[in-house]
Amino acid sequence: MRKFKEAIIEKSLLASALVTILVTLGIILVLSFEAVNFFREVPIIDFLTDTQWTPLFSDKHFGILPLLSGTLLTSFIAIAFAVPVGLSISIYISEYAPKSFRRTIKPALELLAAVPTVVYGFFALTVVTPFLQTFIPGLSGFNSLSAGLVMGIMIIPFVSSLSEDALHAVPNSLREAAYGMGSTKLQNSFRVLVPAASSGIIVSIILAISRAIGETMIVAIAAGQQPRLTFDPTVPVETITTYIVQVSLGDVQHGSLEYRTIFAAGITLFIFTFLLNTISYRIRKKFQEKYE
């Protein structure tokens, strides 16, 4: 009897774990089902090469490039800001700061990632953009610069926290060796510790990129809703995520081509983040083995 009960419990626990597989399958099936319907009507070549994205206008174009460029531009700005800052923070906290400071500052920084993104969007639109406009006169009210920078603030803790963990995990004997040779902390950090922790740091950067590409509300609020194939950070653009929000807010008929566009956009986004996540997972596994 007891054996029977144990078996039932194990099976139901297993079933819960299998739900996660179902979620992944669900995502892949839903996205590809609607995307396949989409590509029946829109040739995939047009989707990949057309430089205009105007599914909601009468002259319809379905080129993903403008949305992709918007996504990459905002993400690039965010990463270009967050990686140097986040990495500097991680080195400072791990090698320079007193231990007590480390204990208080890490949770404080992680608070930055806990702020809801819609709040960051408001910050970008009402504080950062007006501030930047005071010395960039041509800056539009919606722009990728301000959205990207604020997104950068949001992902700082992703970079700093994971990189700090990686630096912290470097064996102390290497630190001693470098100091013993007369290295300054800076030389020790950049010549010995950062290379030794490189896989962990790379993982943190990849996760940050993946996070930036999938971020929605900051760009939807502050970067604008105008699909445009440009790398000018001062003008409004539209990201893949913003487009999905824009369509969802409107009144689009289920089963229509417009409805399917959001799944075509969604699968593009999913493929990008899936690749990034897979790469980071691989590196992380390899990295764990190295130290075990």
């Binding site: 064996p171 004997s173 001693e176 060796a177 100091y179 040779m181 290295s183 010995v192």
Partner: peptide
């Protein structure tokens, strides 16, 4: 400067995860 003059060898061998050449050249490079 002091540590340049007073070298140290540790209990467990602790080469840097770099090439043999770069390990020996490290002290000069810095």
């Amino acid at each position: 400067q002091l540590r340049k003059q007073v070298g140290m060898v540790f209990q467990k061998p602790n080469p840097f995860p770099k090439s043999i050449f770069e390990n020996v050249a490290y002290g000069l490079r810095i």
